[in-house]
Simulated assay, not measured.
Amino acid sequence: MTVLVRDLRSDDPADVAAFAHVRHLAVPFILWTPEAVVHRLVHTPPDARSRSLVAEEDGEVIGTAQIGLVHDSPEPGQAYLNVYVHPDRFRRGAGGLLVRTAEEYLTGEGATKLYSWVLDGPANLAFAERHGYRRRRSAHFLRLDLAGAGLPELRTPPPGVELRTAADFADDPRPLFELDAETVADEPSDVDVEFTDYEAWLADTWRNPLLNRDLTTVAVVDGRPAAFSVAYTDGTRYATAMTGTVRAQRGRGLAKLTKTASLHRARAAGCTVAFTGNDADNGPMLAINKWLGYEVCGTEVRHVRELG
């Protein structure tokens, strides 16, 4: 049996569906839909030199990779490659071939530092180490049973704070872009990023097919968005893509307020399960999620390989 690596055929619905299916089997805590896979590939800025790869064995897609440069970082030469293989198709050579193909391509594009998320399991960690990647920090996936959980009661917003949704900003989402840019800059990360391109944000984030604007909840203070909890949905599953507060308004409980309100709205809309993810060192957000009833359901470890 021969394994080959090629680019995802974004115009082939069956190929895209197979890509999303492998991703779902490997990491069921992240929402993957064919529409979202194509959207990411098509709308990632050209400077990212992004590619989506598949490993194919006898016509079956058994592995995937998303690769590219971190185009919005002030430090050049940084890149990412995230490889996932069908859990029942390990030890066929798919993972190694995807890594080699990705590294050759990214090196040719000027990458000097390669970052990868690796599932926290003995086989996955050993695979990364064999290929020259070294462990950095960890991040947890968390799950909440929305259908059966007793969510904390939604409290009244503090004086001067109004709860709205992203749908209320449909005519002018720029204030949400500015909020997103400030909160992302303060997230725990190995790579600094800067959101400066509003049009790219509109294409990649605001028009993401997973984004549910009616469930995305925003705390507004003095007419400006001060905190938000961004909701993704793929039907009955809900995921928090981001929760954050501007620096000047932190310490008031606005992140907890917006996330609680979003979860209440999600359950009323028929969502039955909620996922989120947190850096293992993000104590404040982990505490909020524990208070909401989330439980850790998986862990990934950030790895890096520096090319000399």
Rank of each mutant, 00 (worst) to 15 (best):
G298E: 01
P175K: 02
H21Q: 12
V70H: 15
V246E: 11
A65M: 00
L8D: 08
V16E: 14
L4S: 15
G253F: 09
R213S: 09
L210I: 13
Y238G: 05
L286P: 09
R130T: 13
K290W: 06
D145H: 01
A266F: 06
G253I: 13
L146C: 00
V5A: 10
V273R: 09
R92D: 09
G244R: 03
A227S: 15
G308S: 15
F19W: 13
G277I: 08
V38P: 06
E182T: 03
L202I: 03
L210G: 10
H39T: 00
L211K: 02
A274Y: 05
T216L: 12
E194F: 11
E35Q: 07
A94V: 11
P175T: 07
H71I: 05
A255C: 03
F90A: 12
E295P: 11
P76V: 09
F141I: 02
P13D: 08
G253Y: 07
R164P: 03
E162W: 03
A203R: 10
K113G: 00
V220K: 05
G96Y: 11
L119E: 09
S189N: 04
A167Y: 07
A241I: 09
L4H: 14
A274G: 03
G68M: 02
A203M: 00
E129N: 09
L69V: 12
L176Y: 03
A128N: 07
R247I: 11
G108M: 14
E182Y: 01
E182N: 02
E75N: 13
I62W: 00
Y133G: 06
P46M: 13
N282T: 08
R89A: 15
L254M: 15
